[in-house]
Design a binder for these strands. Sequence first.
DNA 1: ATCCTGTTTGCAAGCGCTTACATTTTGTGC
DNA 2: GCACAAAATGTAAGCGCTTGCAAACAGGAT
Lengths: 343, 343
Amino acid sequence: MQNQNHSRPTLEDVARKAGVSTATVSRCLSHPAKVRPALRQKVEEAVNQLGYTPHGAARALASSRTNAIGAVIPTLSNAIFANVVQTLQREVAAAGRTLLLAASDYDMAREADQIRDLVVRGVDGLMLTGEDRDRSVYQLLQKRRIRYVNTYVFHPGSENPSIGFDNRGAMAKLVAYLHDLGHRRFAMIAGLTAQNDRARERVEGTKAALAARGLEAVAILERAYGLDAGRDALRRLMRGDAPPSAVLCGNDVLALGALLEAGRLGIAVPAELSIAGFDDLDVAREIPPGLTTIHAPLEEMGRQAASYLMRQEAKEASVHHVELPAELVVRGSTGPAPSQDGP
Amino acid sequence: MQNQNHSRPTLEDVARKAGVSTATVSRCLSHPAKVRPALRQKVEEAVNQLGYTPHGAARALASSRTNAIGAVIPTLSNAIFANVVQTLQREVAAAGRTLLLAASDYDMAREADQIRDLVVRGVDGLMLTGEDRDRSVYQLLQKRRIRYVNTYVFHPGSENPSIGFDNRGAMAKLVAYLHDLGHRRFAMIAGLTAQNDRARERVEGTKAALAARGLEAVAILERAYGLDAGRDALRRLMRGDAPPSAVLCGNDVLALGALLEAGRLGIAVPAELSIAGFDDLDVAREIPPGLTTIHAPLEEMGRQAASYLMRQEAKEASVHHVELPAELVVRGSTGPAPSQDGP
DNA sequence: ATCCTGTTTGCAAGCGCTTACATTTTGTGC
DNA sequence: GCACAAAATGTAAGCGCTTGCAAACAGGAT
């Protein structure tokens, strides 16, 4: 007669055992300050004895808050997303919330499905990657009044909030730096731009910066993420009879591949060829001769995204576009252009 | 009068608009086959016109299933976890479920909290890392009848299901291989063993294998995850006047750091020093001279963990302990012991 | 004591959906 | 056409919790 049967105890069981109403138990659990210590203790005892745990769905239904934050990224296999998610999860957890994670594998249709799923699950906020997605997705988010933020991009003009860096501008810095070193023959090993506005912006930024100097890239190759892809691309670039003197890569992994392949081909870096990346992974600093790259402020982005979403949730006013600095980090993989390439 | 006010449409709104009962709408959404095409279409129209989306919490409460799978890992900043989570997420999503993710930062108390949180959220299954955790956590899981599985370990004797590899055995293979090459002076750069049974097993496996050959490690250093930690450890190891001829590392990142530092110190690998890792990250194959390591079958582990949890959910019988092979991959970073160290 | 104010507690109405079960409709064989 | 089984639909009772509101209580001030 004590325990109904074999199912999990409910709030009511606790209330009965503690000799109070369910309202009081609920308050003990959610707003302990509203309950006198004496009663609170009785309730806590009952909770422990019964091994009671709240029922999240019931709670969410009744209170219409889930305390969950969602994030949709392309993939965790790429460290730059894994690191941001790591930070986000930490921040979100510190605020007593849970992270719901989805990875779209760079597939926009899947991404849309995943966003819808997270909406159905009632996330209180949503971190998205990039800005490129179907209009209907944004409409849904707005209709459901779900706060969201685009990351890895900084689009101050957009109606969609963004926290990230200026991909175009960063590449422009890189071009300027290399141009000043005398480089004139540029090539790029870009990431796949198909469903990826960040990769696209990096290509565009490079093209624009070159054009502003009356130059055009010798070649722009697109490659999937991966060391061998970088190797392969570099091999192809250096094959012709007028190879580039500087190779800009869409990310550090491609750059690392290129660097390793240059080593294998016996091409001296940076004496014969300069190579630069984007992201500033740990390994960029460690690998000889050190990879010149753009530092992507990943931790800061994760932190800011988290705090933006929670601030929004608390209805605090806040800036909807945050630009994080993406600085040029010069290391050993870049240097003056070889003389025949100079001015 | 049409729309109640400004709040989101509910099942009832859809039912009214389509001129059917809420039960029918519910069935259209969850078991479309049980409803005649004619009606189904009317309902679908109403759904679209209203922009209706189901309410996950209500659904979960009424049906007592959440379609969510939880995972708790130490950190996403380590590729070996990121990759498994990536696979898990893919598999779980393919089965129409969502992944709830928590990272414990190698803190057991936090891990326990996160597991409890996921239990409250009603996950239908739970992927855990390693086996080491408080008894009360397992009790909770069992009491609540939540299927779970430990990964990265293979503990056939345990009452807790495990899908992973034999960390001890793998290190034994490595020791055997190097011993056969004539090495007698072994050192290890281990990961932090404090709250990490995998790291501990790797150390134990190494010690045991050495002991079986009448040897003892020259030194065993513990280091946090990171390239510089590996560098630092190697520097320390090589400082003495009887340095090791073989350095076993608890993971590839430490090994990579050690390898890079050896390069900087002008120590020839493998001629003067053999270095081996564990995990087989992409970069292990690419970095000259190639890192000898143990291949951790991460993808397979993610896949199997996912399918185990779903099979359990479907109450299908299944094996509760799966050993995945962790093979030795020999590359250029290991070779015969220098003569003064030989037999 | 008495009245008033401010707290603490209980009551009970949902939150939006699923699903037995009851009821109606449809289809079948004769 | 009719009786009957099978399929489709509707009815309504929850799922376990939160929370507005009312009732009960405590502590001063008078």
